[in-house]
Amino acid sequence: MAEETEGKNETKLPLEGSLRKSDQALVVKTTPPELLETANKLKEQGYTTVVSLSAVDYPKDGKMTLIVHVTGYELPPGYPKMVEIQVDLPRENPRVPSLINVWTSVDFQEREAYEMFGITFEGHPDLRHILLDPEEFKDLRPLRKDFVVKEENIMLKENWGDYRG
């Protein structure tokens, strides 16, 4: 959704990106091969911590976007408080290099993205399910859009009116 993220990078952070109007986050777009390089650059600038690592599924566009939010605790003035890294991935067998060697805080979040979206993080030492049952959700990716939650019927007796007396 590039059209919403217009706005030039007016911050002092020396990185190509666009400032989003709604929340003043700096959106940095990159590709899987360049992800590690971007991450290292951000870490050098003082972005020490990953707040969130997740993805958004766009089945209509045939892509999935990995979204990483990073922040730092002692950022120089003029730097954006939140940097959002967006990486477009194919929906079939998405693979990205793991960020765990850059930011340790990404450990459990990568495991979560792996089980929820099926994104493989190459180089993660312990890529397993974390929240879901590994057997029941072996091939299911709950947060993808093609996973439809089965609605259970409300339990009503057919002739429940008869019991009302």
Binding site: M1, R20, S22, H69, E84
Partner: peptide
Amino acid sequence: PKGEAYAR
């Protein structure tokens, strides 16, 4: 409207 936002 269409778009993204974060809040903390």
